[in-house]
């Protein structure tokens, strides 16, 4: 990849753009299943705009990142390294993991936190082909009655919810859209 591509595509106005991007992520995490637009990043073509913005907003030198499958390529590594400084690591040590649903399996490889520190768990950034408010039914904190979200499957999320208060938290990205599914959500 030409160096110019590695060096470009970050936030032009980091403080304000990351503030907006974070509000989208926070609203998504606080209201599981809700869809939000997130923009401002122009990551390499293999990553979605939403994934790029999430990485720029949440990752830095303190957050080991695991790249799964096709996401683990020089282009993506260079871009994340330049813009966030995040170190790369295996699934067992990561705070953030990035990849497609298939590439991230098996989920048992990722840290789910400890009984005394359930927050020390991985946040999974999952690139999905499309996101819509249909499919699996979600209930739990953040959801008034119930919500729907197009999840790649339901079994894995039920198993994850059963670990509560331990577990993984998911951010789904597609184009410039994102949705989230924390461990507290019950999936049917």
């Amino acid at each position: 990849m030409p160096q110019s591509q590695t060096l470009s595509g970050g936030f032009a106005d980091p403080a304000r753009q990351s503030a907006h991007a974070f509000r989208s992520v926070m609203e998504a995490m606080a209201r599981p299943g809700s869809l939000h637009d997130i923009t401002g990043a122009e990551p390499p073509a293999s990553l979605s705009v939403a994934t790029g913005a999430v990485l720029l907003t949440l990752c830095d030198t303190d957050t080991p990142v695991h790249l799964a499958g096709d996401a683990d390529c020089a282009t993506v590594r260079d871009w994340i390294a330049f813009h966030t400084g995040a170190p790369f690591c295996g699934p067992a040590d990561c705070m953030f993991a990035l990849g497609t649903w298939q590439a991230l399996a098996p989920l048992s490889a990722f840290p789910t936190g400890t009984a005394q520190y359930p927050d020390r768990s991985a946040t999974m950034i999952v690139e999905v082909p499309q996101l819509s408010a249909s499919g699996a039914t979600l209930t739990g904190p953040g959801i008034k009655d119930n919500a729907s979200l197009s999840l790649p499957e339901t079994r894995a999320f039920r198993d994850n919810h059963a670990l509560f208060p331990l577990g993984l938290d998911f951010i789904f990205t597609s184009g410039s859209r994102l949705a989230a599914l924390p461990r507290s959500t019950e999936v049917r």
Binding site: M29, L58, D62, P165, D169
Partner: peptide
């Protein structure tokens, strides 16, 4: 910005585990 990212990550974990105190 680095401080804000650290706080933002804590807020997200807090929302994912309602009522749990994130250091």
């Amino acid at each position: 910005e680095q401080t804000k990212r650290m706080i933002r990550r804590a807020i997200l974990k807090g929302l994912a585990i309602p009522g749990y105190q994130v250091p």
